[in-house]
Design a protein around this nucleic acid. Structure first.
Length: 507
RNA sequence: GGGCGCGUAGCUCAAUGGUAGAGCAGCGGCCUUUUAAGCCGUUGGUUCAGAGUUCGAUCCUCUGCGCGCUCACCA
């Protein structure tokens, strides 16, 4: 029970709550008669002042008490609502002895209060509500972590800020309540998503929703979460991508589709991996991966501009310029530039394995050639791609859903977007040859036959859909969490996911 | 999953093989324009949990739990 664990401090608050109730004041009243936000109040006062008035009467404000400065016969407090903070000024002349004492006795920092009165400016010049009356809106039994703002030369310095990552993520409500900049991150996130929607909607894309519970998972190489439908006696997987369903829609004649939703991958957690994450996938008929590059650079730079008013972001101590167009770099050229390796010179698995051994790069024996090239790419290219870059033309045997580069059977028209050395997205010219697709599925099944965890199941219905004919198509996936992390300059996904995954703990 | 690090009051942090302290918040005072308000006084701890070593452990050792970093994994 909540009360059983109360500290002395919390018991004191509980007693205050009970006392209010005993005195006939409901500590959790049903409604508020707040008639403007704190930000509106400040605007209203400034407007009145511009007209030569020194007061705005009949204002009812409400919010969470964030600071109390009690001076006996008068008292200042700051309250905060979703729009910001404003100061309250309580004076015994206005309120009377009893009411004034009641405030000091019953109200604490983090309680929600409603106060009516008139707006004025204090001697120190702060726009303030001169309180004529006040009441409790919600008593807080647990105190929020104490923090204080100090303004030095116009800059706000915060003291005793809640920083413990575990508390911040497990009790995000406390983090949000106490750290205004955290609220800003999630406003930024919402803005990025709405900018993306706006961009795609303007281009005739249809937003769709496809199954999260899937009888066959696919579209990426990842371990799925499994679940079970009791009535149907059926094993189900939480999707690892939307790809195979969205391409079925292209077959069906929905020429431009996108979905923003959650993917689930049963894998390790890191600064750039969360078991569930938000993905944008989009598919457009009659275009290819070049078309996807144009969309990516336009859409992402637009999101950055809407957020910050310019194309530059600070990430991990470096300035990143998102101004389009972004450079295109083939994996082959990248390896020549950064590693002095031309993969054309290493046509066989054996020659690549020798190269990797020489360079003391670990790899799993028995990997296909494309996988080894992938390892070289991760080692030499990815960390260098700080400025936004399309890394193009991937090995075929690690890209079973992408179409070949014409005339080059070992390479496919695929790119990944790198910003700040982190993969932001993945796109390709979609494979639309049904027999080739079926063959690729079988190759993957063979390649991973020994590895139970990475079984890549054949999706016969998807192959069948392609057999009905899919037009040439470009498709792309962009990790929204990673994008927001980059655009807000955070160094971990956990900062941009409201409730990041943490280990279960006994409460 | 491996390696390294961390876990002390509600929050931010000190300290020591001899039984834990500060600021903020809380509580009691003083103060009629403050803003990290100030001043005086004061409460508050299973030092993450358990076991071991020791006369004595918050400190040393081990195990567990949680968090962080990192490696692996992640077409």
């Amino acid at each position: 029970m909540l009360l059983d664990d109360f500290s002395e401090l919390e018991k004191t608050r509980h007693e205050k709550m009970l006392r209010l109730r005993a005195e006939g004041t409901e500590p959790y009243p049903t409604r508020s008669s707040k008639n403007m936000s704190n930000a509106e109040a400040i605007k209203a006062f400034e407007a009145a002042e511009a007209k030569g008035e020194s007061e705005v009467p009949d204002v009812v404000l409400a919010g969470r008490i964030r600071a109390i400065r009690d001076m006996g016969k008068l008292c200042f407090a700051h309250i905060e609502d979703g729009s910001g903070k404003i100061q309250l000024f309580l004076r015994v002349n206005e309120l009377g002895e009893e009411k004034m004492a009641g405030f000091i006795r019953d109200f604490d920092i983090s309680d929600f209060i409603e106060a009516s009165g008139s707006l004025t400016r204090t001697r120190r010049g702060e726009i303030t509500l001169m309180v004529h009356d006040f009441s409790m809106l919600a008593k807080a039994l647990l105190p929020l972590p104490a923090d204080k703002d100090q303004v030095i030369d116009g800059e706000t310095v915060r003291h005793s800020v809640l920083t413990d990552p575990e508390t911040r993520y497990r009790q995000r409500y406390v983090d949000l309540a106490v750290n205004p900049e955290v609220r800003e991150i999630f406003k930024a996130r919402a803005k990025v998503v709405s900018t993306v929607r706006e961009y795609l909607d303007e281009r005739g894309y249809l937003e769709v929703e496809t199954p999260i519970l899937q009888p066959i998972y696919g579209g990426a190489a990842a371990k799925p979460f499994t679940t079970y439908h009791n009535q149907l006696h059926q094993e189900l997987f939480l999707r690892i991508s939307f790809e195979l369903y969205l391409k079925r829609l292209i077959v069906g004649g929905l020429d431009r589709v996108y979905e923003i939703g959650r993917d689930f991958r049963n894998e390790g957690v890191s600064f750039k991996h969360n078991p569930e994450f938000t993905q944008l996938e989009l598919y457009e008929a009659y275009t290819d991966y070049h078309g996807m590059m144009r969309i990516a650079e336009e859409m992402i730079s637009k999101a950055a501009f809407k957020l910050n008013g310019h194309y530059k972001i600070q990430y991990d101590g470096q300035e990143i310029d998102l101004t389009p167009p972004w450079p295109r770099l083939s994996i082959r050229q990248g390896l020549i530039d950064f590693a002095g390796i031309d993969i054309i010179d290493y046509p066989t698995i054996e020659s690549l394995e020798t190269l990797l051994k020489e360079r003391e790069i670990p790899f799993r024996p028995g990997s296909p050639r494309g996988k080894l090239i992938g390892i070289l790419m991760e080692t030499y290219i990815e960390p260098r791609l700080i400025q936004p870059t399309f890394l193009c033309d991937y090995p075929r045997d690690i890209s079973p859903l992408a179409k070949n580069v014409p005339g080059d059977p070992s390479t496919v028209e695929r790119f990944e977007i790198f910003i700040g050395g982190v993969e932001m997205g993945n796109a390709f010219t979609e494979l639309n040859d049904p027999l080739e697709q079926e063959k690729r599925f079988m190759e993957m099944a063979k390649a991973y036959a020994a590895d139970d965890e990475e079984q890549h199941p054949m999706d016969h219905d998807f192959v069948r859909s392609l057999a009905y004919g899919m037009p040439p198509t470009g498709g792309m996936g962009i990790g929204i969490d990673r994008l927001v992390m980059m655009l807000t300059g955070k160094n971990t996904l956990r900062e941009v996911i409201l409730f990041p995954h943490l280990r279960k703990i006994e409460d």
